[in-house]
């Protein structure tokens, strides 16, 4: 987590002078104009009400937040939307773990390939994703459906007698997520593997460490920044996604992305959608702050 935060406590870093701030200005301006300003708008909306048409009325209310945590009829603690939050995190977590296991060896392979071929291989990882998301997903649907190619193949080879249900299950959602986010793990891990000193790895092996031990003691710690970056780039966007769970899961188990999408695109309840969004951001920020603090304590 340290690496991702820019290693604030590394010895040698120092306070920025005039030049430092000057160079930082473009990014700060960008963040203020296009991240902080829209987030503030969102924050304001989350405390507003809506009129019949769905336009936002600027009258203060806590209702949108109350609705997330409490049942509107009984006033008791409600789990409707919390379940949705938890489900999204579980999906994202599973996806991240699988991406890590599947993607790490690929990043290793690309990072250790002859230098002239690395960029070629990296680009090849990415090219499938230059097609449209929707078309890729429909291709998966064609593969996984009851009358689909995979069932057809398994029946043809007599491995199964009856087609079995693959599409529109949580498993299909995770498959879709892993497929979509795998490159975002491979690429940053590659960045760390690539700079790994070959002699260090070989030294570990020469000293008689088995592959497992060498990996655990030498390789993993050295590529950790890349792994953390990859985990962040997969896990964070995966929480908010909605289209994959809708198309490949059949929409039976809504994720937070889907519910928020519905507030804006169906129920016309922007303030509630904004409140759900703000809650997501706050939960994320707390978790992020906590893990990064925990991490620095462990490291020190």
């Amino acid at each position: 987590m340290q690496a991702a935060l820019g290693a604030p406590d590394t010895t040698g870093t120092r306070r920025p002078g005039v030049i430092g701030w000057l160079m930082m200005t473009p990014m700060l301006l960008w963040l203020f104009a296009f991240v902080i300003a829209p987030t503030l708008i969102l924050l304001v909306y989350s405390f507003c009400q809506r009129d019949d048409l769905g336009e936002v009325v600027y009258v203060f209310t806590w209702d949108n937040y109350r609705r997330i945590f409490f049942d509107s009829d009984t006033g008791a603690f409600g789990t409707t939307y919390l379940t949705v939050f938890v489900r999204s995190v579980v999906y994202a977590g599973l996806t991240t773990i699988i991406c890590l296991i599947v993607g790490y060896p690929v990043a290793w392979f690309i990072g250790r390939a002859p230098e002239s071929r690395r960029n070629l291989l990296l680009t090849l990882v990415m090219i499938p994703f230059w097609t449209s998301f929707l078309i890729r997903t429909y291709a998966w649907i064609t593969i996984l459906s009851t009358n689909g190619l995979l069932n057809g193949f398994l029946q043809y080879t007599k491995l199964i007698a009856e087609p079995f249900e693959m599409l529109y299950t949580p498993g299909a959602v995770v498959l879709g997520l892993v497929y979509s986010y795998l490159p975002f793990l491979i690429l940053p891990v590659y960045g760390s593997v690539e700079k790994l000193d070959n002699s260090l790895v070989e030294a570990a092996f020469d000293l008689g460490a088995g592959p497992m031990r060498a990996f655990q003691k030498v390789i993993l710690p050295l590529t950790q920044p890349g792994v953390i970056a990859g985990v962040l780039l997969v896990f964070i966007p995966a929480i908010g996604m909605f289209a994959i769970s809708q198309l490949m899961g059949g929409g039976t188990d809504p994720t937070i992305g889907e519910v928020i999408q519905n507030q804006f695109m169906q129920a016309r309840d922007w303030p509630f959608g904004a409140a759900l969004g703000m809650t997501l951001v706050v939960l994320f920020a707390v978790a992020f702050w906590f893990t990064s603090r925990h991490q620095s304590v462990v490291e020190n």
Partner: peptide, 19 residues
Amino acid sequence: KDIGKAAKDIDKVVTDLKG
């Protein structure tokens, strides 16, 4: 016909039952 704010109760009922 337009049902205005009733949309939010509908959304909650359906979201709740879907899972």
